[in-house]
């Protein structure tokens, strides 16, 4: 009995997917609206998808990429609001879509967009200078506790993912840092290598070059499991050899930034289904896997229920941090 119902459900899903696919395809060139400037992580994400779609002929219509990165990406989301129900505008972002309205008065809410899919998760690590006297994350936290508010930790932007993570570490461990915002991850990496700050919480590919050169070292990764096996990056340590932060005694089991794709609210289910299907196909190509590996992200495809659950979870836990820090916008 149970089996049949599952079969039925699967058949129904298949049917609806196939049906949806037959019902709607884009009728004009699709705009990829990127919530960052040219060259940023989100920009590379969108342009990689653009090239995968072109190489595998996954869509008949052509793709135009537009950068709208003003106001930490809010420009792109306000643009989505202005283009309500327009199925030819696909918006590329991170978790900033649903987090921005919490920290600043914005002319949109997360209800103005519908999530299509998340294609990868970017990890966060604690990095320190290679010759720093900390062997592991616990020692680093202890040093911060010994001198409250004096260890400078760099990150990109203000009240964005980096500062949120630093605040979260402070709340969980009781340590106190001095957070210094810079313009982007690459810049923060170099500031650390030059010894101008004591640590940063960069994504893997933002610090890879400096780690290879042995200028900086990772202490721990904010994930519930270690990162995937890889070739050694510096000396004989590779990504898999980095301890998780829970192992190191920081009680944050997981902090990841999703790379997300959205549509303006008001599009039909068929239209949404087309793009979900498109993104799924993209995520299965070898070119996509290569991009994920090259940028040391975790490839994971999320859509539908799973994606909404992920977003709810991430939003609730982050907003708690915002509240504790007093960042929430009225």
């Amino acid at each position: 009995m149970k089996k049949t119902s599952i079969t039925l459900a699967v058949a129904a899903t298949l049917l609806s997917t196939v049906g949806a696919f037959a019902q709607w395809v884009p009728e004009r060139p699709v705009e990829f609206v990127v919530a960052s400037g040219p060259g940023g992580g989100t920009d590379n994400f969108a342009r990689t998808i653009q090239s995968v779609i072109a190489q595998h002929n996954l869509m008949d219509q052509s793709v135009v990429v537009l950068n709208k990165g003003a106001g930490s990406g809010a420009e792109a989301f306000i643009y989505a609001k202005a283009n309500n129900a327009n199925p030819h505008k696909l918006i590329f972002g991170t978790n900033n879509v649903y987090l921005l309205p919490h920290v600043a008065k914005m002319a949109y809410t997360s209800e103005d967009l519908v999530p299509v899919a998340a294609l990868a998760l970017d990890e966060f690590l604690i990095w320190v200078k290679a010759d720093a006297p900390y062997a592991d994350a616990a020692e680093f936290i202890a040093a911060a506790k010994a001198n409250p508010g004096s260890l400078p930790v760099g990150g990109s932007q203000s009240k964005d993912t980096d500062e949120t993570l630093v605040a979260l570490i402070e709340q969980k461990t009781g340590a106190e840092f001095k957070y210094v915002p810079y313009n982007g991850g690459g810049e923060v990496g170099v500031q650390l290598a030059g010894g101008h700050i004591a640590a940063n919480v960069n994504n893997p590919n933002e610090n890879l070059g400096q780690w290879q050169a042995g200028a900086i070292k990772p202490l721990c990764v904010f994930s519930d499991q270690r990162m995937a096996e890889s070739d050694p990056v510096h000396g004989d340590t590779g990504w898999h050899d980095i301890a998780t932060c829970t192992e190191a005694g920081i009680d944050i089991s997981s902090y990841q930034m999703p790379r997300t794709v959205w549509l303006p609210a008001g599009v039909s289910d068929e239209q949404l289904a087309f793009y979900v299907d498109l993104m799924q196909k993209v995520s299965e190509t070898p070119e996509w896997q290569e991009y994920v590996a090259n940028t040391s992200q975790t490839g994971r495809f999320l859509a539908g229920e799973e994606l909404s659950a992920f977003i709810d979870n991430s939003e609730t836990s982050t907003v708690e941090v915002f509240k504790a820090e007093g960042w929430t916008a009225q």
Binding site: P38, N205, G209, Q212, A213
Partner: peptide
């Protein structure tokens, strides 16, 4: 951005 997509890491190495 291109460099990273091609699998090269800008940096001292």
């Amino acid at each position: 951005g291109g460099l990273m997509i091609w699998g090269l890491t800008p940096g001292p190495m």
